[in-house]
């Protein structure tokens, strides 16, 4: 048996706990979505999406642990780098109107 199957409390395993935590992170992401939609400035939106991206990376990593699929971490890795790229690209775009692209 692996660590993920170990019981934490009341029949819930570490995997269950991690899944619940992932759900928690998603709920936080939904909260953050308000800022992405509301703005008011473009930078606010980019910022919110950047935070959402970091959250998604954590969610992906937690899913990898909870579902015992370590290869999912590769997706998280790709996402972490893309997320950074997106934030830089959009914030550069808002200032230079495509000067960087």
């Amino acid at each position: 048996m692996t660590l993920v199957d170990a019981t934490v409390v009341a029949g819930y395993t570490v995997g269950d706990f991690l899944l619940l935590a992932a759900a928690g992170f998603v709920v936080l992401a939904i909260g953050m979505l308000y800022r992405a939609v509301k703005g008011p400035t473009m930078q606010d939106r980019v910022l919110a999406v950047n935070v959402l991206g970091t959250n998604t990376v954590v969610i992906l990593a937690i899913l990898a642990a909870a579902l015992s699929e370590p290869t999912f971490l590769d997706i998280a890795l790709v996402y972490a780098l893309l997320n950074f790229l997106m934030a830089i690209a959009i914030s550069k775009f808002t200032v230079e109107r495509g000067g960087v692209l």
Binding site: L33, A36, V37, V46, V49, L52, L63, Y79, I90
Partner: peptide, 14 residues
């Protein structure tokens, strides 16, 4: 819309 669409694809990937 483009920015929020980025967030959408985050969710889809997850």
């Amino acid at each position: 819309a483009v920015i929020v669409f980025g967030a959408y694809s985050l969710g889809m990937a997850a």
